[in-house]
Design a protein around this nucleic acid. Sequence first.
DNA 1: AATTTGCGAAACCGAATAGTTGCACATATA
DNA 2: TATATGTGCAACTATTCGGTTTCGCAAATT
Lengths: 105, 105
Amino acid sequence: MRRDIFQAVADPTRRAIMVLIAMQALTPNAIAAHFDTTRQAVSKHLKILTECELVSQEHRGREIYYQLELKKMKEIDIWLEQFRKMWEDRFHQLDNLLSNLNKQP
Amino acid sequence: MRRDIFQAVADPTRRAIMVLIAMQALTPNAIAAHFDTTRQAVSKHLKILTECELVSQEHRGREIYYQLELKKMKEIDIWLEQFRKMWEDRFHQLDNLLSNLNKQP
DNA sequence: AATTTGCGAAACCGAATAGTTGCACATATA
DNA sequence: TATATGTGCAACTATTCGGTTTCGCAAATT
């Protein structure tokens, strides 16, 4: 059970669930209706997403609404940040190179 | 063998390798020296990273230098984009709410 | 009170994963 | 040429993963 964000996002079904509940909270049954798996399988995905706090629950009667925790998504963004800086730097270097070539034909 | 970027990034050792070779290309032996595993294990990680084009090779004699393909990293960024928009929207909503509260005490 | 509905947990299964050891092959070096 | 070095690949292993089926429990409905 590694259970970190990156491992959670690795599974395509989990990513699809995340997109699905990003806009509005849904129950496990409602989510399962969108996929070709059982509700129990979805339930396991939701458990993993809950454990790494990518998803939060709201109990309403006997139903449980799951919602995406956007702020947790930022952690992936933060990790990407170090690389984003690099690829932007390279873009600017290329940009400078090209403009210098234009100035000195 | 799912072999997509998200699955590749899911492994912590692989992420560490990515950070390591982001700045300068390294050989499998040099990479393995940084970790508590065998060179062969690193080689397998590099194979996976190569297969999803997160890494490129440069043969120099009998040595192979591996380098991170920053442009491929953008694909993760692109996926995050849809969520980034949401969390920025929420931030602005909160921002507007706060400034409205200040204007109307 | 009896039944239906919504849910999670446990037990099980096949496939994938990450690691090891042992090997083969090409390229340097003596 | 003989040897050392750098590498990838194959075979094997323990563990994890994603899925199903079965079950128990709580909340609604009858």
